[in-house]
Amino acid sequence: MAIPLKARPVQNDLGIVGWGWAGRYGLERYLYTLHRLTGLGVLFYLVLHIFATSTRIFGEPAWKATMGFLHHPAFRFGEYLVFAGFVFHALNGVRLIFQELGYLLGKPTPPVFPYSYGLRDFRPVAFLVVVLAVVGAFVAFCDMFLV
């Protein structure tokens, strides 16, 4: 029988604000936050998408009215943000699948100063994710707004 976990007092906890800024940490800590935000964004889009397409059951006028409303430039920009978020979330998700299974993190090394740690040794992987996501978002921007 596992020992039950008690919640500690939250008097000095950073809370959700701590996801955004908690100190001078490296890239991965902020990718953690971005991954959550983009995940929530994609989920929100899914709900909105189901709601928008379900207006068809109320007949053609309702459907056309909804489509007219969604053609507003703000929604088009929102659609672009969802795609850019999706690209980042997918690429970072692949990185996380590997690293959360202990791959792409190296092996435990003897604790000799200056200390190394797996995520820093494999930081190029995180940089690659960011670069590919930026390229994907740029291509989508050109496709949706410039071409």
Partner: peptide, 11 residues
């Protein structure tokens, strides 16, 4: 744990 890595960085 969702691998933010701050623990290893600051240790």
């Amino acid at each position: 744990c969702h691998l933010a890595g701050a623990c290893s960085e600051a240790c």
